[in-house]
């Protein structure tokens, strides 16, 4: 595949090197900003979700204590900026930092638990942990490894609001025998 900046900062290495990452954890990081109403509106307009918890300030205050963030935004709050002045760049997930042979990735499955409401104005932080890296498996897309990671999100009061588990497939888009 021609080189394209994916923003993933893929690290390359062997399966044995990758296995050594199981159990490793990132330091706690703050999400970019407080939970923003504009992001909530754009996300709801994307999927056409008219739930008053996300749109109707009065209704939401009576039921939740403020505008509720859709649960589907949980993983979005920890997405990194693509550039910042003089700052350190990081990929969206620790999964792409794990050294493996694959040149690209696709997401496979998620398992998310929601423990407390996240309201507009809250501030979140998160920690990500490597749960597992599978042996090489062949799929229709190509051969590669399944990487399981888990992010725990806390609010500014230190309460866990959600736990998001993700399985990512890291694979070779071109079979070895077809490479130049």
């Amino acid at each position: 595949m021609a080189y394209v900046d994916t923003g993933l900062h893929l690290q390359y290495g062997s399966f044995e090197e990758a296995r050594a990452w199981i159990g490793s954890e990132t330091p706690p990081r703050d999400c970019e900003d407080e939970i923003e109403r504009s992001q909530i509106k754009y996300f709801c307009s994307l999927v056409e979700d008219g739930n008053p918890s996300y749109w109707d300030e009065e209704w939401a205050r009576a039921h939740w204590g403020g505008i509720l963030a859709p649960p589907g935004l949980l993983f979005v709050w920890s997405m990194p900026l693509l550039w910042r002045p003089g700052g350190e760049m990081r990929p969206p997930t620790i999964a792409t930092q794990i050294p493996l042979p694959g040149d690209t990735v696709i997401n496979v499955s998620t398992d998310s638990r929601f423990l407390r409401p996240v309201l507009a104005g809250d501030r979140l932080s998160f920690v990500e942990r490597v749960i597992d890296v599978s042996a090489e498996k062949k799929t229709q897309l190509g051969a590669g490894h399944f990487i399981t990671t888990e992010i725990t999100y806390r609010n500014h009061r230190g309460e866990v609001v959600g736990v998001h588990r993700n399985v990512l497939f890291r694979y070779r888009s071109t079979p070895e025998e077809a490479r130049p």
Partner: peptide
Amino acid sequence: HGFFDRVGGEWAGPEAWLARRRLD
């Protein structure tokens, strides 16, 4: 994530609490 939550939420109502979502 958002699309499933919308389809489920329109049925469950805005007071329902989504406790867990498993997606493949």
